[in-house]
Design a protein around this nucleic acid. Structure first.
Lengths: 148, 148
DNA sequence: TGTGCGCTTGACGTTTACGTCAACGTAAAG
DNA sequence: CTTTACGTTGACGTAAACGTCAAGCGCACA
């Protein structure tokens, strides 16, 4: 597990290549480049080569979480751009705050949808388990990994 | 707002046309047909015309919630099919229960992502508000709808 | 010095989720 | 009996999010 520069852990690294970034996040280099094309990340260049810093990794984390939540990439861009938007003037700050409110409303809608889905799932599982205990306790060749 | 069959409310209706279904759910008839093509709904036919029942509306509700949560339609189909899958034999029931566990794990991951996003958003808002009070209380022409 | 490995830029292909005609059928209303 | 409004089946178009070559560049190492 030796890193090629001899550090103890990757946590000390300052910069990364596209390949390192890609398989650390479990995506392809094409995907990383696609995010760059859309302006979600903008790595430094060393000549023609891309150099990724901590900032880029943070952004990638936010991007992938946004994707897990089903947000389109364009929307994800506006969200993470919000985090380091200029907020010097009062009007800018108030704009950012209003955007925050919109984002929160969206997230809370999603949370409500998830709670509802989980509740339904629980009810459904209970009904299934009742059907199960109602049945005879006759053995079944299928594996017993319910408790796992 | 009189319905053409003269009932008081749409809640009493037993069947609906594609147009009624579509604009009740705020989607196009093309979308409804697309869901049918993918096997997410299968309305009754009266000759060539589609007739939608309560069952179809329930399914549409689940479909749209799944979409709000960012699930692909194919996955949504397997999910809602699960709800009325045959579970007569014990092995079938156990399969359904295992699927439920998978679904729940997925939903809980998403919920965790949402909680994290909301927490970050809260922290970010607090920092913004501090910057705001730090600034001079000079008036700004922008609207004052923060408390709303 | 050349050879390979990793990186780069196109450019086209693919899948998902519909949008958008086009052309036709049909049932009720005038 | 002919509109007309609604419904139906293709079939092609499109936008998003990458996948997949192809071809070339540069640098480290034998």
């Amino acid at each position: 597990m030796a890193t090629r520069t001899g550090e103890t852990t990757t946590a000390m690294r300052e910069t990364w290549t596209i390949a390192e970034i890609a398989d650390e996040f479990g995506i392809t280099h094409r995907t990383v480049r696609h995010y760059e094309d859309l302006g979600l990340i903008s790595p430094e260049r060393h000549g023609t080569r891309r150099i990724y810093h901590r900032r880029d990794r943070t952004r990638l984390g936010l991007i992938l979480r946004g994707k897990r939540l089903g947000f389109p990439l364009e929307e994800i861009r506006t969200i993470i751009d919000l985090y380091d938007a200029p907020r010097g003037r009062r009007s800018q700050l108030e704009y950012v705050l209003s955007q925050i409110d919109e984002r929160r409303a969206d997230l809370e809608q999603r949370r409500a949808d998830i709670e509802a889905a989980l509740t339904e799932l629980d009810g459904f599982e209970r009904r299934c388990r009742e059907e199960l205990t109602q049945q005879g306790q006759g053995p079944t060749p299928s594996a017993r990994r319910v408790g796992q």
